[in-house]
Nucleic acid binder design. Structure first.
Length: 441
RNA sequence: GUGGUUGUAGCUCAGUUGGUUAGAGCGCCUGAUUGUGGUUCAGGAGGUCGUCGGUUCGAACCCGAUCUUCCACCCCA
């Protein structure tokens, strides 16, 4: 009856060498979040279905993992009351409403936890994956949009990415476009269609707009937006003329102009900031800025996303608290970094020294020295038995431990130790204090 | 959710029209080396061919179901 064990579709085990690299990503992100004044929180893996349902568009509900009810409730029509969280933003909105009296606004929080989607897996698309979110609620200041773009730039530059684009747009501009075309009520179908410009091209988008019942007159009006070119400033100018009759559209232009001017004024390290009118994103709670980050030259979906949402907490009974936030897709960033070979060697090392075990007396001496090394902050371990030396050396080699220390009968007698550099193969004899001095130099 | 694709040793993959005992490279284990890993040499172990069922004298190969992988939609990190 011992069937081969299996793992749930779209999920993964992480081995130590993979974890070292994943932690490198998480640590880098966390460090930047902290530097910008964000505070950590966590929320439960499960939320009530009521909290989650209806927040992610029609498609979103389908992708939420529902938890089967238990006991008698199971008979009662299979109505799930609990579900695994689909992202970190909606649970955060719920969190803010419930804890509004304990937190200080503007509240800046970061959160690094897994989320689950009942999707069909593909490369770079998992059913369990981590999001690393930073959000601010309680302020509609555009200062935060500027800072969030800087955070994208700083994190990804620190991770070693050199070629990536931060795409920015504004939902108000999309509303303005729909308004100017006389199809104000069709903003969702319009944005969903033009979002695909990259993928299906201009003709494909036009076809899709037709299928979605947009008038030919409106399509003709939208047409020039498909071939928007030039610098961000050029695009802003063209859009401003295009949206001249739309109050909301002009408001979007004004916001976007501020953010772009500020960011460009201060400069970015590696990121390219690109205004992209066709950037829409599926989440329909966005109301202002919309962000997406793409790694150029790697064929994978977006690696980060984000935007401003004015009404999200209102859904849970707290109005007047605008929020804006971003999310790093750690799993996709991992895939990109693997493909580009960007993980540093140093992300792999753990134990620095292995004590070779030659017998009981030698082991006792090694344990004393190991404690000594650990007290000075050097990570080390003692091989647990007097196995063949070849086996012990191989263990050090396989674990990429850079030094081994040998204490045999001679060293025991003389109060010395022999240490070997595993990379160069050189070895020397010293006493414990000299060894510590060597490692700390 | 729709359509397609993949599965053979720990890993990457061969495997002829269905025909004895299913192979290679790498990795692993043992020895050459009783105080020296990574290199070299010699030897060895390891497979219910994803799973279940069917066709056949006979199935890794043909058929069906199922799971998994990847891809295109949908959507998204």
């Amino acid at each position: 009856m011992s069937n081969k064990p299996s793992i749930v579709k779209g999920t993964r085990d992480f081995l130590p060498d993979v974890m070292a690299k994943r932690n490198h990503i998480f640590d880098t992100i966390k460090q930047v979040f902290v530097k910008y004044g964000f505070l950590p929180i966590e929320t439960p893996a499960m939320e009530t279905t009521e909290t989650l349902m209806g927040k992610y568009g029609e498609e979103g509900d389908r992708l939420i993992f529902k938890i089967l009810p238990r006991g008698d409730k199971l008979k009662d029509g299979f109505k799930p009351e609990e579900a695994l969280r689909y992202d970190l933003t909606v649970p955060f909105a719920r969190f803010v409403v419930m804890n509004q009296n304990e937190i200080t606004f503007p509240f800046k929080r970061y959160q690094i936890q897994p989320v689950w989607r009942a999707d069909r897996p593909q490369k770079g698309r998992y059913r369990e994956f981590y999001q690393c979110d930073a959000d601010v609620v309680g302020s509609d200041s555009l200062v935060y949009e500027v800072e969030l773009v800087q955070i994208f730039d700083e994190v990804l530059s620190n991770l070693g990415l050199t070629d990536f684009s931060v795409k920015i747009n504004n939902r108000k501009i999309l509303s303005g476009i729909a308004e100017v075309c006389g199809e104000a009520d069709k903003i969702i179908p319009i944005t969903v269609a033009i979002d695909k410009l990259d993928k299906i091209g201009k003709d494909g988008v036009i076809k899709e707009l037709e299928e979605r019942g947009i008038s030919h007159k409106a399509i003709k009006k939208i047409d020039p937006l498909f071939s928007l070119t030039g610098s961000n400033q050029d695009k802003l100018k063209t859009l401003k003329d295009f949206l001249a009759d739309s109050e909301i559209g002009l408001k979007g232009i004004e916001e976007l102009t501020y953010v772009i001017d500020q960011v460009e004024g201060m400069g970015l390290r590696k990121a390219k900031l690109e205004l992209e009118v066709t950037l829409a994103r599926g989440l329909n709670y966005y109301t202002g800025a919309i962000f997406e980050v793409a790694a150029n030259n790697v064929k994978i979906g977006s690696i980060c996303g984000g935007g401003r949402y004015d009404d999200l907490t209102a859904l849970f009974g707290l109005s007047g608290t605008s929020g804006v936030g971003i999310s790093f897709g750690a799993d996709r960033i991992y895939d990109v970094m693997s493909e580009l070979n960007l993980f540093p060697e140093s992300a792999l090392q753990s134990t620095k020294v292995l004590f070779i075990n030659f017998g009981e007396d030698e082991q006792n001496q090694s344990m004393k020295y190991a404690k000594h090394l650990r007290d000075t902050g050097i990570s080390c371990e003692v091989y647990p038995s007097a196995a063949k030396m070849k086996k012990q050396m191989k263990y050090a080699n396989d674990r990429s431990i850079p030094y081994v220390v040998m204490i045999g009968s001679d060293e025991l007698k003389n109060g010395t130790l022999t240490y070997k550099n595993m990379e160069s193969g050189e070895q020397e004899t010293a006493n414990i204090n000299q060894l510590i001095a060597e490692f700390n130099s």
